[in-house]
Design a protein around this nucleic acid. Structure first.
Length: 263
DNA sequence: GCAAAATGTCAAG
DNA sequence: TTGACCTTTTGCA
């Protein structure tokens, strides 16, 4: 269940354990068998993430993975476990393995095709030197609610349902504010905050947006119930003003906000 | 045993 | 705007 920080973490970890090695690639479930055969036994160069997309380069061929809503990797050292369930793709090297299940996309592409995917993505707060200006240009031109624009991967990439709800709360922005009414003074700190929050998420592997963020950064334990301001807190009191948190569907996704703080 | 939910995207109408 | 799709886990009979 991934937002951008999850994918960047996977790229980092998979590069660490598999890059520079000949990887045995298989598809016990079978639906990726043809693709697996194309790269099986090749040397992995590197794994990179752009937004919520993962790219594993084996020379000119690239395994593209998008986890979607349900996709999940498991991984470990030593001998891989007996394949269970719908195991789409398995990587094995001498001392490590990783398994992929439930992904929306798992396919072999050329570098040209990868370039086309990346070209369609807005700036990713987790990529070095990413510029939020390009995202703002799109937002400032749109009548659509800012909450929807933040989830549009062609506007900016990597932000999902948790980060969008939390970032809007942290900046006290009403979710239905039209993009064109988002001022530059509103946008600049929001983008900087996204970079900060998502980097923290990459480090700890979880999304923490409340004042407990500092404790998490110092290695302290933060309860799941304390990690968010509004996400999945429908009916619970706002941590700032006590008003019950509201939930409404927007484009078939659950949108959470505080009707008092975010006006 | 079965329904519902979960940090997502695409295409049809 | 709606439905389809990917899979596992959780909660309630």
């Amino acid at each position: 269940m991934p937002e951008g920080h999850t994918l960047h973490g996977l790229a980092r970890d998979q590069s660490q354990h598999f890059a520079g090695k000949r990887v045995r690639v298989s598809s016990p479930q079978g639906t990726f068998a043809a693709g697996a055969a194309l790269v099986d036994g090749r040397i992995l160069d590197v794994v990179t993430a752009h937004g919520k997309h993962l790219f594993a380069a084996f020379g000119e061929l690239v395994v593209h993975v998008h986890l979607g809503l349900f996709g999940k990797y498991t991984a470990g050292s030593g001998e891989p476990p007996e394949p269970r369930g719908a195991l789409r793709m398995r990587w094995v090297v001498d001392d490590h393995w990783t398994d992929l299940r439930g992904a929306t996309a798992c396919e072999v592409l050329t570098k040209l095709e990868v370039g086309a995917i990346i070209a369609r993505l807005g700036p990713d707060p987790l990529r070095p030197r990413a510029k939020g200006d390009r995202a703002y240009a799109r937002i400032a031109r749109s009548r659509a609610p800012v909450a929807g624009l933040l989830m549009d991967q062609s506007v900016l990439s990597g932000v999902g349902n948790v980060y969008r709800a939390e970032i809007l709360f942290r900046h006290r922005i009403p979710p239905y504010l039209p993009g064109r009414d988002v001022t530059e003074d509103l946008w600049a700190p929001l983008w900087r905050d996204l970079v900060t929050l998502m980097r923290a998420g990459l480090r700890s592997g979880r999304i923490i947006t409340t004042r407990h963020l500092d404790r998490d950064r110092q290695g302290g334990y933060v309860r799941a119930a304390d990690a968010h301001y509004v996400y999945r807190r429908t009916g619970l009191p706002c941590r700032i003003c006590g008003t019950p948190i509201t939930m409404q569907l927007l484009a078939a996704r659950k949108l959470y906000w505080c009707p008092t703080c975010q006006t």
